[in-house]
Write a protein that binds this DNA or RNA. Structure first.
Lengths: 252, 252
DNA sequence: GACCTCGGTTGCGTATGTTGCAACGACTGT
DNA sequence: ACAGTCGTTGCAACATACGCAACCGAGGTC
């Protein structure tokens, strides 16, 4: 809609990939370098971009500031924190908190596991719905009509041999997740990792977010993973309580 | 330089303050609401902004993503982490890591203290140079000419009775800091808190950042604060070593 | 149920802001 | 000294983003 803004935002992504020279950036977004220069200057004034010497650009501090401000304003993140941190400390596995946004999953918090296998995820990163445990939980919590709409509209990129490939399979899986109250990602997203996820609920029983635990397959087989479900659910229940949820139906 | 971009970035700040209505935002940056709408749409496409229902706007996930990507790329943050986390755990006081940017201090990491008094600081937030211990350390590390240039060019807002008010006082203080190897903020920034800070150095002995410890005055008097200096310096030395610094002059 | 207000959305013509170009200057390495 | 990068500036042409005013749609009030 707004050309220069559009270009500037694209620019930020290019800069994030690696600190670049002016012409590289110009090439990447397909405009003249003088245009890039002007955009960068404006971004710099607002501290969205920082120049490192001449010849290098990096993301600036306004980014951190706004982002942290925004993260602080996500209430579930704060209210779920103690329970998830404890879960992470107790099990040593990587714990994620995620929410639904525009046909994808967004990670809003992450507690790094103790084992050396690091996952390719990060707070703010997005992931598909159909191949993540958190995605399944979040969509399963929606009314049937919306589920189907989403199942129909999203893409089904095949990331591993186990990835769900069709809307109908996805819907069937969602039904199962809704029934069980938790979801499994059996190496459907990353080859060597499987996950379990469960919902975090708010005062009216609505699902605010999903929390997951990710475990490398070499560390724990499928049985072992499922054995962690009660542990995870204890944590999500605690997180739900901190978010205003009450056991027996509607709160208040 | 670029009007629409400039407006859009200002807009982000307004949104960060609190999720607003269209007209509020329009008023705030002084343009027609249809203009705001178009900017918001572009920001939304890039996930910089999220709509909550209709009628509410919040910062979006692209922000978190880019910010975390950027934070990860700040090497000193990562390499200083273990030492600072340990310092924080050992003493229970709030620990900050900060660097110099454009006439101000920018916090690039924070370890929350255990006592209930919370500081008004956040990763990404900026603070003045003349009334923070980290600011003094960072400027003191610069060559004399640059020190004076900075001392001359910055403002000296008076935030507490103890705040340094003039360039010459600031320069004298910097000289002292350079000599001692650490800096003190004796309630010059916030009335009830005093801090000590020391530099974190890289392979060539250059100062990469400054680490500080902040303590409420009710918890520890001035003497008690100074008694923590060795502890802080042990941590910054450890952080420096992890950043490539070697005891005897030039590294490698 | 009609009226009103408030917030969001759209189409349009215009002027303004943004763009690409080409030339310049600073710096590097050969 | 020269060629090669890379960043920076002024200018003229044009596309773009702007403000306006009118149109919806939802909630609230009488």
């Amino acid at each position: 809609m707004s050309q220069s803004l559009d270009r500037a935002l694209t620019l930020l992504n290019s800069i994030a990939k690696d600190a670049c020279t002016l012409d590289d950036l110009a090439d990447e977004i397909g405009v003249h370098k003088s245009t890039v220069l002007r955009l960068l200057r404006t971004l710099e004034q607002h501290h969205f971009v920082r120049r490192e010497g001449t010849r290098y650009y990096r993301l600036g501090s306004a980014m951190f500031d706004l982002a942290n401000q925004a993260l602080d304003s996500i209430d579930v993140r704060r209210s779920a924190q103690p329970a998830l941190a404890a879960l992470n400390a107790r099990t040593g596995h990587t714990v994620h908190l995620a929410s639904y946004d525009d046909g994808e999953v967004v990670y809003i918090d992450k507690y790094e596991g103790r084992h050396s296998v690091r996952m390719y995820s990060r707070v703010g990163k997005r992931a598909p719905l159909h191949c993540t445990a958190v995605g399944k939980v979040l969509v399963a919590a929606m009314p049937p009509a919306r589920r189907e709409e989403i199942a129909r509209s999203i893409e089904y990129p095949v990331l591993t041999p186990n990835t769900i490939k069709t809307p109908s399979d996805f819907l069937a899986e969602l039904e199962r997740v809704g029934r069980l109250g938790y979801a499994v990602d059996n190496a459907e997203h990353e080859d060597f990792i499987h996950c379990i996820a469960a919902p975090v609920r708010g005062a009216d029983g609505e699902v605010l977010a999903a929390a997951s635990m990710s475990v490398p397959k070499v560390l724990l087989d499928y049985e072992g993973l499922l054995a962690l479900v009660p542990d995870l659910r204890a944590a999500t229940t605690e997180a739900s309580v901190h978010s205003g949820w009450t056991e027996n139906g509607k709160g208040h």
